[in-house]
Simulated assay, not measured.
Amino acid sequence: MRLNDKTAVITGGASGLGEATARHFHGLGARVAIFDINRERGEAIATELGEGAMFHSVDVTSAASVEEAVEEVLARFGALHICCNYAGIAPAVKTVGRDGPGDLELFRKVIEINLVGTFNVARVAAYAMSKNDPVDEDGSRGVIINTASVAAYEGQIGQAAYSASKGGVVSLTLTMARDLARNGIRVNAIAPGLIHTPMFDSFSQEVYDSLAKQPLYPVRLGQPEEVARLAQHLVENNYMNGECVRMDAGIRMQPR
C-alpha cells in the first residue's frame, strides 16, 4: 500500500515516535490524524503541517473517545487506511518495592493504556478500514502498526508492568493479523530498543552516555525518524504481515 493519498491515524502523535511518523507520512503525501492527550502540542503540529493534517484529543482507553475521533477522521478525510499505535507510558513498577508489594493500580494503568488502548484503537480503526474499497491488486484495505518494545523480551528490573503490556502487544499482533486477513488488513508491530525520544533529554549526561554505549552497532541511540522509516516500510510492503520487528541495533537488555 502506497502512503500517498492515504489517511493515517497516529496515536501518541504529539511527541516522540508518533510525531516523527506523522511528519514523515505527511511528507510522503499521506493525510495524518494526530491522536493524543496533549492538545496544545498536537494542535501546534497539525497547524504546522497544514493541509492534510488534523488533531483530536483522544483517551485511548475510552471506547467513546476513540469512536468519536475516528468518526471525525472519516468525516474530514473520507476514509481511514493506516493506524499506528504509539501511545503508551513506562513508569517503574517492581513486584516488591521498598515499602511493600508493587503498586497494583499503577500496574493496571500501564496495561490499560499500553495494551487495552492498543486494542481499542485498532478495533475501531479496523472496522473503518474494512469498509474501504481495495486499493491494490492484493485487495489491501488497511494496515495496522502496533508498538511493542525490546522490554517484551528482556524486561529490566522495574519494568514488570511495561514488559507485560508490551509482551501482550507482541502476542496480540499475529492474532489480530489472522482475524483481519479476510478483510484485507495487515497487522505488524515494531519493537524499538533505545530510541532518543524527549524522555532522554531529562537524563544526566553520564546516564545518557551509558545508555548510548549499549547497542551493538551502531553504538548510539536510535532516532525517531528511523522508526518512522520502518513504519513506512511496513505500510508499503504488502508481504509483511503478522510480524514483530525488533529495531534495536542488536541490543540485548541486561537486568539493570
Results as ranks from 00 to 15, higher is better:
154 E>D: 15
159 Q>D: 14
152 A>K: 04
144 I>G: 01
132 N>H: 04
144 I>R: 03
152 A>T: 03
137 E>Q: 13
161 A>V: 05
145 I>L: 11
156 Q>S: 12
154 E>C: 10
141 R>D: 13
138 D>H: 15
127 Y>L: 13
130 S>Y: 11
133 D>A: 15
157 I>M: 14
155 G>M: 09
126 A>L: 03
155 G>D: 09
141 R>Q: 12
151 A>P: 02
150 V>F: 08
146 N>E: 09
140 S>G: 12
134 P>K: 05
127 Y>S: 14
142 G>L: 04
155 G>V: 13
128 A>P: 02
157 I>D: 15
137 E>H: 09
131 K>M: 14
157 I>F: 14
134 P>M: 06
156 Q>C: 10
161 A>F: 02
123 R>W: 10
140 S>I: 01
135 V>S: 10
160 A>W: 00
157 I>N: 13
132 N>V: 01
148 A>G: 08
138 D>L: 14
149 S>M: 07
123 R>T: 07
156 Q>E: 15
154 E>A: 12
161 A>H: 08
161 A>W: 01
135 V>W: 06
152 A>L: 07
157 I>R: 11
154 E>K: 11
141 R>E: 12
147 T>W: 04
126 A>V: 06
149 S>K: 02
146 N>L: 08
148 A>T: 11
141 R>L: 07
124 V>E: 00
135 V>H: 02
144 I>Q: 03
137 E>I: 05
153 Y>A: 12
144 I>W: 06
150 V>H: 03
145 I>H: 01
156 Q>F: 04
133 D>F: 11
136 D>Q: 08
138 D>C: 10
153 Y>F: 15
139 G>F: 11
141 R>P: 09
155 G>Q: 07
131 K>P: 10
158 G>K: 00
141 R>M: 10
129 M>K: 02
155 G>L: 08
123 R>S: 12
126 A>C: 08
137 E>V: 08
147 T>R: 03
149 S>Q: 06
161 A>Q: 06
146 N>R: 05
133 D>S: 13
147 T>D: 04
125 A>I: 00
151 A>H: 09
150 V>C: 11
127 Y>N: 14
130 S>I: 02
145 I>K: 00
151 A>F: 05
161 A>L: 03
129 M>I: 09
132 N>T: 01
150 V>A: 08
138 D>N: 15
124 V>G: 00
140 S>P: 06
142 G>I: 09
159 Q>W: 08
140 S>H: 10
145 I>R: 00
123 R>Y: 11
133 D>Y: 10
140 S>E: 14
138 D>M: 14
159 Q>E: 15
130 S>P: 15
153 Y>C: 04
150 V>T: 12
159 Q>A: 13
159 Q>L: 10
